[in-house]
C-alpha cells in the first residue's frame, strides 16, 4: 500500500471525526448535551414530584430514581446549582423558582404528549407513558402551546393528572387511594398511577378505566373486590393503592342509576344523560355533532350478525356506533 492512499485515508478519517455538525465528534457532543439535558429534566421532575407529595428529595432519592452512581449525581447536582435550578439545604434538595418553572414545563410536555397519544394517535394506555417519557424533552414553549391548542386545551392527562397551564399553575389532584376509601358508597376513579409500570398493567388488565364508577364489595388483606355494577374486579391492595377515587360529584350521581347506551335492549327508548368523561377530544365532539347531546331521546334500531355495532335512531337519523363507544354514553330509559 503506498503513501498517498494512507494519507488520503487519514485525512478522510480526521475529517469524519472533526467536521463540524456532521463529524463523529460533533454528533457525540450533541448526544452528550441532549443526554445531559434529559438528566437535568428528569431530576427536576423528581424534585417537583417529591415536593407535591410533601416529601423531601435528597441525593439518594435522586440517585435511585435516575438510576445513577453517586459520583455522577453529585456532579449533576453541582451543575444544576450553578444553573440556579436547585438549592441544597443540608441533605435536602429544593427547587428554585426557575427550577420549578422548568420542571412544570417538562410535566406539561409529558402530559400533553400523553393526551395526544391517546386522543389523536389512539395508542393503548399502557404504552403512552413510555412514549411520552421519550418525547417530553424536545419541545419548546411555543411548540407546547401549539400542541395544547391543537388538542383543545385539555385540563387532565389520560391518567387523571392535571396538566399545568401555560402560566404554570397546576390544579390539585383530588381523590384518595382506593385502599383508604372505607364506605360502601359508589365512587369514581379519578386517577390511575402509571408508575410502577407493572402495577399499572395490572390495573389496565383488570379493565379499570378513568371516570368509571365503582363500588367496593369486599376487602381483605389479600385482595379488594370491586364492581362497576356489571363486572367484578379483583385487585391486590398494593395495586389498588395506585387507583385514586373520589366521591361522586352531584351531577354524576345521576349517572349512578343511568345505564350505558350499549345495554339498551332492542327498540327500548332512552334519554341521554351525559357523555362519559373518558370520551374526550375529537370523539366527544363527533358524538355531540351527530346530535348525541344530553336530553336527546334515542333507541337502538338495527343490529348486525355480530351484534356490534348497533345503529341507533338519533334525531331522525340512523347512526351506527360500536359497543365500546355506546358504553360511554349514559342514558336513562324513558
Amino acid at each position: 500500500m503506498n503513501m498517498t492512499v494512507w494519507l488520503a485515508l487519514t485525512i478522510v478519517l480526521i475529517a469524519a471525526i472533526f467536521i463540524p455538525r456532521m463529524g463523529f465528534l460533533a454528533i457525540y457532543k450533541t448526544y452528550r448535551a441532549t443526554r445531559e439535558r434529559e438528566l437535568v429534566e428528569d431530576a427536576l421532575k423528581h424534585l417537583l414530584d417529591r415536593e407535591q407529595h410533601g416529601r423531601q428529595a435528597s441525593p439518594e432519592s435522586l440517585a435511585g430514581t435516575l438510576n445513577l452512581q453517586r459520583g455522577r449525581i453529585t456532579r449533576l447536582i453541582e451543575d444544576m446549582e450553578t444553573q440556579g435550578l436547585l438549592e441544597s439545604r443540608g441533605t435536602n434538595l429544593h427547587l428554585t423558582t426557575q427550577g420549578e418553572r422548568w420542571a412544570l414545563h417538562v410535566v406539561r410536555a409529558h402530559r400533553l404528549w400523553e393526551r395526544y397519544l391517546t386522543d389523536e394517535a389512539r395508542m393503548p394506555l399502557g404504552r403512552i407513558h413510555g412514549e411520552s417519557e421519550r418525547r417530553e424533552h424536545s419541545l419548546t414553549e411555543a411548540q407546547l402551546n401549539d400542541l395544547d391548542a391543537a388538542l383543545g386545551h385539555p385540563t387532565r392527562d389520560p391518567h387523571g393528572d392535571p396538566i399545568p397551564t401555560r402560566e404554570g399553575t397546576l390544579l390539585k389532584t383530588e381523590g384518595m387511594p382506593l385502599t383508604a376509601w372505607q364506605s360502601e358508597d359508589p365512587v369514581r376513579i379519578v386517577h390511575l398511577e402509571d408508575e410502577p409500570a407493572l402495577a399499572f398493567e395490572q390495573i389496565l388488565a383488570a379493565g379499570l378505566r378513568l371516570g368509571q364508577t365503582i363500588r367496593i364489595l369486599d376487602r381483605n388483606p389479600q385482595r379488594i373486590l370491586l364492581t362497576d355494577g356489571e363486572t367484578e374486579f379483583r385487585l391486590a391492595p398494593a395495586v389498588a393503592a395506585n387507583v385514586s377515587v373520589a366521591p361522586l360529584p352531584e351531577s354524576e350521581a345521576a349517572k349512578a342509576n343511568a345505564i350505558p347506551l350499549a345495554e339498551l335492549t332492542y327498540d327500548q327508548r332512552a334519554e341521554i344523560v351525559v357523555l362519559d368523561e373518558a370520551v374526550q377530544g375529537f370523539t366527544r365532539r363527533r358524538f355531540l355533532d351527530l346530535g348525541l347531546t344530553p336530553g336527546t331521546v334515542v333507541y337502538p334500531e338495527l343490529q348486525n350478525f355480530f351484534g356490534d355495532p348497533r345503529a341507533y335512531r338519533v334525531r331522525g337519523t340512523l347512526i351506527a356506533l360500536r359497543k365500546d363507544q355506546a358504553a360511554q354514553i349514559w342514558v336513562k330509559p324513558v
Binding site: M123, P124, T283, R286, T317, I319, A320, R322
Partner: peptide, 13 residues
C-alpha cells in the same frame, strides 16, 4: 401501525 381501533360513527342515510 400499532394501535387499537378508534371511534367509529357512521350515518346510515
Amino acid at each position: 401501525l400499532k394501535g387499537e381501533a378508534s371511534a367509529f360513527t357512521l350515518e346510515l342515510p
